[in-house]
């Protein structure tokens, strides 16, 4: 049981992340295709943890799988079309996801506090999609933020009573970690040149996928600490506060960005821990 858990939540996603980095580093695949590839890998992770969802979907967890597909399609579009209204599309995708996932809750009472909490990842994703091109196209800003969101989000979710999606976030963290590790090694340490622009769409897919999972956790984790979740969502500000590191291909810049990410992540985990204790 533990071996299966370690394989599906850590080992396999980590290897998939390395594959993704190889796709960026060693192939001539275009941004759109890489975004689609990232989406397929996240769906593989979903399948490993949750199985094949029924169609039409019955529960919010099933809907999540179809939203991950939607994110892949949108990411493909972002990679293929330079002048798409990306911010507006990201906002619409986020709101559609919230509306669909929380459909039954909204129908019973649209003013429940957790629904407002679930807006934070939507706004975080939208705000990041609106970033200027040099920040969006940086190889490390979004992936480091995504990694921190996924790790801290997984712990906050476990302590909030929703273990299933905590596993999903843990697996997304492993995938992003594998992708980031190889990218860091080749680009920041070995100094190999990479067209950073072609990773922007796939980085958006990773961030958007984690954001939709976080949204779902905000809606359904029965013992979620609201304060911990708010602190967690401060991570969406990382590209803004670490903007000066954008485009710097040295070994220190990603570590410094990670340093910024550690603060809200640890604050969120500590708050969730204290609330659960």
């Amino acid at each position: 049981m533990l071996l299966t858990l370690a394989l599906t939540t850590v080992a396999i996603p980590l290897v998939l992340g390395v594959f993704l980095a190889c796709g960026v580093q060693f192939t001539s695949a275009k941004a759109a295709l890489l975004a689609l590839f990232a989406s397929v890998l996240i769906l593989v992770v979903y399948y490993l943890l949750e199985g094949v969802p029924p169609f039409p979907p019955i529960s919010s967890k099933h809907k999540l799988a179809y939203l991950l597909i939607l994110i892949g399609v949108v990411g493909f579009g972002f990679g293929a079309m330079k002048n798409a209204p990306k911010t507006l599309i990201a906002l619409v995708v986020g709101l559609v996801a919230l509306g669909w996932i929380a459909q039954r809750k909204i129908a019973s009472d649209p003013f429940q506090p957790e629904l407002f909490l679930a807006l934070l990842p939507v706004l975080g994703l939208t705000g990041n999609t609106a970033l200027r091109a040099e920040l969006r196209q940086d190889l490390f800003l979004w992936p480091i933020m995504t990694l921190a969101l996924a790790i801290a989000g997984a712990i906050v979710s476990v302590l909030g009573g929703y273990i299933g999606l905590a596993q999903m976030l843990g697996a997304c963290a492993a995938l992003t970690g594998g992708y980031l590790a190889l990218t860091y090694l080749r680009v920041a340490v070995l100094g190999k040149a990479v067209d950073a622009g072609k990773a922007a769409a796939l980085n958006w897919v990773l961030l958007a996928s984690v954001s939709i999972i976080l949204l779902s956790i905000a809606v359904f984790a029965s013992k979620l600490s609201s304060l911990a979740f708010v602190l967690l969502c401060l991570l969406y500000a990382i590209p803004f506060v670490a903007a000066r590191f954008a485009g710097r291909m040295n070994w220190k810049a990603p570590i410094a960005t990670g340093g910024y990410a550690v603060v809200p992540a640890l604050a969120a985990i500590a708050t969730a821990w204290l609330t659960a204790a």
Partner: peptide, 18 residues
């Protein structure tokens, strides 16, 4: 109580949705 919370979550009974 902690186990009941998890059993109420979408992993099992999904008591909020159903």
């Amino acid at each position: 109580e902690a186990r009941d919370d998890h059993l109420r979550s979408p992993d099992f009974l999904n008591a909020e949705e159903f």
